[in-house]
Simulated scan of single mutants.
Amino acid sequence: MKSLFYALAFSGLSLPMAADPTVDPSAVSEPSCVILLHGLARTDASMLVMEHALQAAGYRVVNQGYLSREAPVALLADPALRAARAGCGNDTSPDVVTHSMGAILLRSFAADHPELDWGRVVMLGPPNHGSEIIDTFGDYAAFETANGPAGLQLGTESLPDSLPPVPFETGVIAGSQSLNPILSAVIEGEDDGKVSIESTKVAGMAAHLTLPVTHTFMMQNPRVIVQTLSYLNTGAFEPELSAGDALSELWDLGVESVSQTP
């Protein structure tokens, strides 16, 4: 037995410890749960870097996938959010981080289920008032095929504007850089290549921040990730945070696979 003890000790393992009888297991809090919802024509893989950063910061994460081009928003939102909340277990007021259309799924589901509680929500590039891209190209068959029925609901006078103010503590991060000047040309005002900064704003939000990032890659950008962590932790963004400081914070967490693309 003594030789087994030394073998375990010097191998870097430890022997099981007896439970402390003075500690009530039910009083030990579980990590807060964060639900991730990706955007249109994406998968949960697009949120993996965000997932890793949140886990490194101590959160329990449910990175919820859904078939974004297969059905209208309401039919996508219900099974996705039900599954995500179930994945959060005992946490009945989970935080949520959304990218793009994921915000509209969340708002739609929350409107249909006002009895549910939520924690803090960070929306990345949300089309809270739709996008002129849908107005301009939505009638083309190829566009409908590429974006599905949910995508066609994201015009500037469509589903997003019919939803009520957000019922949760919400911080919005908008992008000001574009990878597609053709698409940006049909969008009114400054934009991220898909959604205008003005469209990201929503009634009831608590904070709004614009960063020099693009719609396509913003959820993998170090500044966006660290600002998301800041809002989830404190309910506020850090507007003065530099790109270098954001990288350092992520490296300190052990997260190095972040995109340097805006």
Rank of each mutant, 00 (worst) to 15 (best):
3 S>W: 03
5 F>I: 13
6 Y>L: 14
6 Y>M: 08
6 Y>F: 13
10 F>Y: 14
10 F>H: 11
11 S>G: 15
11 S>L: 15
13 L>K: 14
21 P>V: 15
22 T>C: 10
24 D>V: 08
27 A>F: 05
27 A>S: 15
30 E>Y: 01
31 P>K: 11
36 L>D: 01
38 H>W: 04
40 L>H: 00
46 S>W: 01
55 Q>F: 00
72 P>Q: 13
73 V>N: 03
74 A>S: 14
77 A>I: 05
79 P>N: 11
80 A>H: 03
91 D>S: 11
105 L>K: 01
108 S>Y: 02
114 P>L: 15
115 E>H: 09
120 R>H: 05
121 V>A: 12
121 V>K: 04
128 N>T: 07
130 G>L: 11
133 I>Q: 07
135 D>V: 05
138 G>D: 05
141 A>F: 10
142 A>F: 10
142 A>Y: 04
148 G>P: 02
149 P>H: 12
150 A>P: 00
152 L>D: 00
153 Q>G: 10
153 Q>E: 15
154 L>S: 04
159 L>Y: 06
159 L>F: 08
160 P>D: 11
161 D>L: 15
166 V>E: 02
170 T>M: 14
172 V>Q: 08
174 A>I: 03
179 L>M: 10
181 P>D: 13
185 A>I: 04
188 E>D: 13
195 V>S: 08
196 S>H: 06
198 E>T: 06
201 K>I: 02
203 A>I: 02
215 H>E: 07
218 M>T: 05
219 M>T: 03
221 N>K: 08
222 P>Q: 10
227 Q>E: 15
230 S>F: 02
237 F>W: 07
237 F>D: 01
242 S>F: 06
247 L>H: 12
253 L>H: 03
262 P>R: 15
262 P>E: 12
